[in-house]
Nucleic acid binder design. Sequence first.
DNA 1: AAGACGAAAGTGGTTGA
DNA 2: TCAACAACTTTCGTCTT
Length: 272
Amino acid sequence: MVHEDIADHGPEWRAFDKQQRDKRARVGPPTKYTLPDKGLSTIISTKNRDSYGSSIPTKQRAQFYRLRKMQKWGRIGNSSERSLSHAISELNKLCSQMNLLRNIRERASMIYRKAAKKNLVRGRGVESVVAATLYITCRIMGLPRTLSEISDASGLKRKDIGRTYRFISRELKLRIYVPTPLSYVSRFCSELKLSQKVVEKSSDILKEVIERKLISGRGPVGVAAAVIYISTVLCDEKRTQKQIANVSGVTEVTIRNRYKEITEILDINLEI
DNA sequence: AAGACGAAAGTGGTTGA
DNA sequence: TCAACAACTTTCGTCTT
């Protein structure tokens, strides 16, 4: 979609609603894609000036306010298109904040459109659905982020994102595989500034753990965190349970429980 | 003082009658 | 529809380094 706003040389987000102006003014470059604006050229300024720059009498201001309001509606057609442009900008913000690749962002926006077309956004909030589609996309693409990570980046509650994600994936009948703990290991390790040795150690232990079952029913994130904890001790690059809890988004208690089980079954001794 | 430990109670989703 | 259930979290007192 081409943005051809000839008459207006101001910042391109100017004429949208106040919420967007606040958000866009604070962070990130102006959005370049998908403004569902058909190129309407005459803009009613938000300044109370006429075309000569002189002030407009108070009496007429109310009238102009109404005009602006009407134009806002007319400019972008209908409410679903307006909320789509909002959604796309939220998505871009989230993705750049989380350093996600372009192809993930594009897949996510496709899924969002599908959801919007099926009226799944209504009553759930654009931000929440954006976060959920991003969560879904990352998993589909085999680069899962945790709900905690998306929660941190978006400022939404993990619970809500999870709820929305379940709803969306059910309604769109998306096949989403359960991530293996391995898909978290290298990312967590690099966030903890651990060496490649620890990554490899973690992979080895994970292989054992998976072979001998008994991670069934356990959350993959907790297992990954526990295995990393074990590996840091074995490789003499120890991190505290708290540090690992912070990057993985599970609690220290969960790490303890998992790593106790694993060390017992695999007969690993962490003492010296 | 910080890390690790584990008990106990709470939360929210899943499952099966 | 609802109660039982499993996984995980929160909280907190205690032990270890």
